[in-house]
Amino acid sequence: MELAVEDMESGVTLVRLNGRLDIAGASVIDLRFSALAGSRRSMVVDLSEVTFLASMGIRLLLGSAKTVTSKGGHMVLMAPIADVKNVLTTAGIDTLIPVYPDVQSAVAAVKL
Protein backbone atom coordinates (compact mmCIF):
# COMPACT_ATOMS: atom_id res chain seq x y z
CA MET A 1 0.00 0.00 0.00
CA GLU A 2 1.39 3.38 -0.99
CA LEU A 3 0.37 6.84 0.13
CA ALA A 4 1.26 10.11 -1.60
CA VAL A 5 0.33 13.59 -0.38
CA GLU A 6 -0.20 16.72 -2.45
CA ASP A 7 -0.98 20.00 -0.70
CA MET A 8 -2.83 21.99 -3.34
CA GLU A 9 -2.86 25.78 -3.69
CA SER A 10 -6.55 25.78 -2.84
CA GLY A 11 -5.70 24.63 0.70
CA VAL A 12 -6.97 21.16 -0.03
CA THR A 13 -4.81 18.12 0.72
CA LEU A 14 -5.04 15.38 -1.89
CA VAL A 15 -4.11 11.96 -0.52
CA ARG A 16 -3.52 9.35 -3.20
CA LEU A 17 -3.70 5.72 -2.10
CA ASN A 18 -2.39 2.89 -4.23
CA GLY A 19 -2.78 -0.82 -3.55
CA ARG A 20 -4.88 -3.04 -1.31
CA LEU A 21 -6.60 -1.41 1.66
CA ASP A 22 -6.85 -4.65 3.64
CA ILE A 23 -5.36 -5.60 7.03
CA ALA A 24 -1.80 -5.45 5.72
CA GLY A 25 -2.33 -2.30 3.64
CA ALA A 26 -4.15 -0.41 6.38
CA SER A 27 -1.39 -1.22 8.88
CA VAL A 28 1.26 0.17 6.51
CA ILE A 29 -0.39 3.60 6.13
CA ASP A 30 -2.28 3.82 9.45
CA LEU A 31 0.07 6.17 11.33
CA ARG A 32 0.77 8.48 8.40
CA PHE A 33 -2.85 8.66 7.27
CA SER A 34 -4.12 9.29 10.80
CA ALA A 35 -1.50 12.00 11.29
CA LEU A 36 -2.66 13.70 8.10
CA ALA A 37 -6.26 13.59 9.30
CA GLY A 38 -5.14 15.15 12.56
CA SER A 39 -3.38 18.05 10.86
CA ARG A 40 -5.53 18.87 7.81
CA ARG A 41 -8.98 20.44 7.52
CA SER A 42 -9.76 19.76 3.86
CA MET A 43 -8.87 16.29 2.60
CA VAL A 44 -9.65 14.46 -0.64
CA VAL A 45 -8.77 10.77 -0.60
CA ASP A 46 -8.14 9.46 -4.10
CA LEU A 47 -9.18 5.79 -4.18
CA SER A 48 -8.84 5.32 -7.95
CA GLU A 49 -5.74 3.11 -7.53
CA VAL A 50 -7.10 1.14 -4.57
CA THR A 51 -7.81 -2.36 -5.87
CA PHE A 52 -9.31 -3.89 -2.72
CA LEU A 53 -11.10 -2.63 0.37
CA ALA A 54 -12.01 -4.56 3.52
CA SER A 55 -13.27 -3.57 6.96
CA MET A 56 -9.81 -2.65 8.30
CA GLY A 57 -9.53 -0.10 5.51
CA ILE A 58 -13.04 1.13 6.26
CA ARG A 59 -12.06 1.63 9.91
CA LEU A 60 -9.13 3.77 8.83
CA LEU A 61 -11.22 5.90 6.44
CA LEU A 62 -14.05 6.32 8.94
CA GLY A 63 -11.76 7.14 11.86
CA SER A 64 -9.88 9.72 9.81
CA ALA A 65 -13.09 11.32 8.52
CA LYS A 66 -14.35 11.61 12.10
CA THR A 67 -11.07 13.26 13.13
CA VAL A 68 -11.19 15.80 10.29
CA THR A 69 -14.88 16.54 10.89
CA SER A 70 -14.41 16.97 14.65
CA LYS A 71 -12.19 20.01 13.87
CA GLY A 72 -14.82 21.51 11.59
CA GLY A 73 -13.12 20.23 8.46
CA HIS A 74 -14.21 18.02 5.57
CA MET A 75 -12.93 14.77 4.12
CA VAL A 76 -14.31 13.16 0.95
CA LEU A 77 -13.50 10.10 -1.13
CA MET A 78 -12.81 10.16 -4.84
CA ALA A 79 -13.12 7.82 -7.81
CA PRO A 80 -13.27 4.33 -6.29
CA ILE A 81 -13.30 1.43 -8.75
CA ALA A 82 -16.60 -0.48 -8.99
CA ASP A 83 -15.69 -3.28 -6.55
CA VAL A 84 -14.40 -0.84 -3.95
CA LYS A 85 -17.44 1.40 -4.39
CA ASN A 86 -19.63 -1.66 -3.84
CA VAL A 87 -17.93 -2.29 -0.49
CA LEU A 88 -18.38 1.36 0.53
CA THR A 89 -22.06 1.24 -0.40
CA THR A 90 -22.69 -2.11 1.31
CA ALA A 91 -21.09 -0.83 4.51
CA GLY A 92 -23.07 2.42 4.29
CA ILE A 93 -19.89 4.49 4.24
CA ASP A 94 -20.92 6.45 1.17
CA THR A 95 -23.77 7.99 3.21
CA LEU A 96 -21.29 9.15 5.88
CA ILE A 97 -18.29 10.19 3.77
CA PRO A 98 -19.27 11.75 0.42
CA VAL A 99 -17.88 10.05 -2.69
CA TYR A 100 -17.10 12.11 -5.81
CA PRO A 101 -16.26 10.86 -9.29
CA ASP A 102 -13.33 13.18 -10.07
CA VAL A 103 -10.79 15.53 -8.51
CA GLN A 104 -12.58 18.72 -9.60
CA SER A 105 -15.85 17.91 -7.87
CA ALA A 106 -14.09 16.43 -4.83
CA VAL A 107 -11.86 19.49 -4.32
CA ALA A 108 -14.81 21.85 -4.79
CA ALA A 109 -16.70 19.97 -2.08
CA VAL A 110 -14.03 20.37 0.61
CA LYS A 111 -12.58 23.77 -0.30
CA LEU A 112 -12.92 26.11 2.69
Binding site: A54, R59, L62, G63, K66, A91, L96
Partner: peptide, 22 residues
Protein backbone atom coordinates in the same frame (compact mmCIF):
# COMPACT_ATOMS: atom_id res chain seq x y z
CA UNK B 1 -26.87 -0.25 13.45
CA UNK B 2 -26.91 2.21 10.56
CA UNK B 3 -25.52 5.57 11.68
CA UNK B 4 -27.37 8.72 10.67
CA UNK B 5 -24.23 10.84 10.65
CA UNK B 6 -20.44 10.67 10.78
CA UNK B 7 -20.51 11.91 14.38
CA UNK B 8 -22.80 9.05 15.44
CA UNK B 9 -20.95 6.40 13.41
CA UNK B 10 -19.14 3.74 15.38
CA UNK B 11 -15.86 2.39 14.08
CA UNK B 12 -15.83 -1.37 13.46
CA UNK B 13 -18.48 -4.05 13.31
CA UNK B 14 -18.73 -4.15 9.51
CA UNK B 15 -16.87 -7.41 8.83
CA UNK B 16 -19.66 -9.92 9.38
CA UNK B 17 -22.11 -7.64 7.57
CA UNK B 18 -19.77 -7.65 4.56
CA UNK B 19 -19.52 -11.48 4.73
CA UNK B 20 -23.32 -11.78 4.71
CA UNK B 21 -23.58 -9.34 1.82
CA UNK B 22 -20.83 -10.66 -0.46
Amino acid sequence: VTAESLVEAKIGGQGIHLMRSF
